[in-house]
Design a protein around this nucleic acid. Structure first.
Lengths: 151, 151
DNA sequence: ATCAAAAATAAGAATTATTCTTATTTTTAA
DNA sequence: TTAAAAATAAGAATAATTCTTATTTTTGAT
């Protein structure tokens, strides 16, 4: 039962909004883009059409940044850089993908490589005062018992 | 102002719970692990201590799976495979990291590579009936106007 | 064009992971 | 011992996402 789809102007607008930007938008951003064109669109419709488009392979998820999932209209494999200051997501053309590792029994469908750092606009260095803290003085951990169910 | 820390048995237990498992747990899973040992711990304390431990470089985030952030007590760079059926996260030892790409102006702090697929336990192939759908018949997109503010 | 079934939608409620607030307790250094 | 700083519990608040239901739109067949 392969879910036949009907035409939908809203879906078309959602997909086009993602394709028309390089910002790898969130659902809400897409909603705010499309709203002026189609004022009666609802946020739920954006979410539902994102889901449909992902099922169709027309959209891809880039990941979650600041608690928001971000999407990409370019579904061909490529990599991204995410700024840990402003949350912007940048396409990376060149980076050669790492070689396929041996993971016995795990059937790889896709991979996602993300570089974290500070974008040119945010400049400077990220706060790294925390790097001094390598160890707690007191935390030496000495239980480490068994657990029941892994996730 | 480098935030001096006090000793905390709860924090120690949170960190040890993550270190004692290979399941790359979520905050709630950690909470449920620690609760029997320290019955008066609260979920908020787990969240706060995860945050503290991340600031200290003692814990790392693996990513968001099924709307839950998952953590790793191994902070040395390595890669992961995530099962899209059961959500389990598996460490990958071997995979050579991709070469550092040229991203002018973007200062890379860290990278994260994740392989998506189906783990050995879940076996079989992932549902791929959706791969037939490569294109909408009708969606041809012809606006693609400009937008105001990118994220 | 008409009609009925299937698909899509709006509106808003429900869910839920995470963060925040406040009063209280614990840790720490003096 | 003591007082300031840090940590905590409890639960409220926030917010992204999903779900529900009644209504509207699309579509293929007539």
């Amino acid at each position: 039962m392969g879910a036949t789809r009907n035409y939908s102007k809203k879906r078309e607008a959602v997909l086009e909004a993602v394709r028309a930007t390089k910002c790898h938008p969130s659902a809400r951003w897409i909603y705010e883009q499309v709203k002026p064109k189609l004022p009666d669109i609802s946020l739920g419709t954006v979410y539902r059409n994102i889901k449909v488009c992902r099922e169709e392979g027309l959209l891809a998820s880039v990941g979650v940044v600041n608690n928001e999932e971000r999407f990409d209209g370019i579904v061909e494999p490529h990599q991204h850089a995410i700024c840990t200051k402003c949350g912007s997501i940048i396409d990376i053309e060149s980076a050669a993908p790492s070689s396929q590792p041996n993971l016995d029994g795990f059937a790889v469908d896709s991979r996602r490589t993300v570089f974290y750092g500070v974008c040119a606009k945010c400049g400077g260095q990220e706060k790294n005062w925390l790097k001094k803290f390598r160890r707690f003085g007191r935390l030496a951990g000495k239980f480490g018992k068994k657990q029941k169910g892994g996730i």
